[in-house]
Simulated scan of single mutants.
Amino acid sequence: MITIIDYGMGNLRSVQKGFEKVGFSAEVTADPRVVERADKLVLPGVGAFKDCMDNLRNGGFIDAIHSHVSTGRPFLGICLGLQLLFTESEEFGCHQGLGIIPGKVRRFAEDMEVAGERLKVPHMGWNQISIEQPSPLLRGVADGSAVYFVHSYYVDPENPEVVATTTDYGQRFCSSIWHDNVMATQFHPEKSQQVGLHILKNFGEL
């Protein structure tokens, strides 16, 4: 069973429907006891970093997430669910994350340009991924595939070996990671049509 954490923030139903579309049962839960014993765990997220961390803490999910990851069971973070894995974020101050992946969450610069044209922040819409290492999520996904993004912040891992894909938007940034049983994407697989569904299927088959 795939378990999706309901901590009050995130596109929970769309992620659940994505898994169901590729043939996997997925439950949405706000019970940290269910999270701790999940076979496969998904942490989606939208909104502000600090608010999400507060909700995870107040819901009793922090220890449950660390327990799940430490036992080697598959974990998938989506969008803010990727950023929350890191040590800290500079969003509206400096805020501590889950600390599972060393590194920081940084904001795109407001003055980014390409060919003299100012780039908008947030980075919103379709963009390509360049595969840096063969994450299990990417099995059968072509290099240069287009996926859907909505974000103003990006992750900056201390260890470049955790970077699974990069994407260009005024700069080259890490758009997904893979470290042992922990996988996470800055883009939204559930909004990325066939490529995204294939990624969710790969996670379900782990």
Rank of each mutant, 00 (worst) to 15 (best):
V163H: 13
H123L: 14
S175R: 02
I4E: 03
G60M: 00
G204V: 10
F92C: 11
Q128R: 15
F24G: 09
G140S: 10
L84F: 03
G99V: 03
K201M: 03
R107E: 12
S135I: 04
R139D: 13
P157H: 13
G204I: 10
G59L: 00
F108L: 05
P160W: 08
A26V: 10
E90H: 12
V195N: 08
G23S: 07
F203G: 04
H179P: 02
V141P: 08
E27M: 14
K104H: 11
L43P: 04
G77I: 06
I100A: 12
D156F: 08
G116H: 07
Q16A: 02
M124N: 08
D63R: 13
Y169I: 13
Q83A: 08
E88P: 06
W178A: 05
S25E: 10
D168A: 15
W126K: 10
L84P: 04
Q171W: 14
S130P: 04
K21C: 13
E20T: 12
A38G: 06
A38Q: 05
P74D: 00
R73D: 00
Y148W: 14
D168Y: 15
N11R: 07
I65K: 07
I199V: 14
N55V: 00
Q186S: 02
M124Q: 08
F92G: 10
D63N: 11
S192E: 06
C94M: 13
T3Q: 08
Q171R: 15
K21G: 07
G60H: 00
L197V: 01
F187C: 09
Q194G: 09
E190N: 03
G125D: 10
F149R: 15
M124P: 07
G47I: 05
R73V: 01
E27G: 14
L43D: 02
E90Q: 12
L85C: 10
V162L: 07
E113N: 12
P157I: 13
G140A: 10
G23T: 05
L41I: 13
F61T: 02
D111P: 15
P160S: 11
E113T: 15
V46K: 06
K120V: 11
Q194F: 13
H151V: 05
F173G: 02
F49M: 04
Y148R: 11
S25D: 07
A30T: 09
Y7V: 00
K120N: 13
Q128A: 15
E113M: 15
A146R: 15
I65C: 11
V114N: 12
E27I: 14
A142K: 15
Y148Q: 09
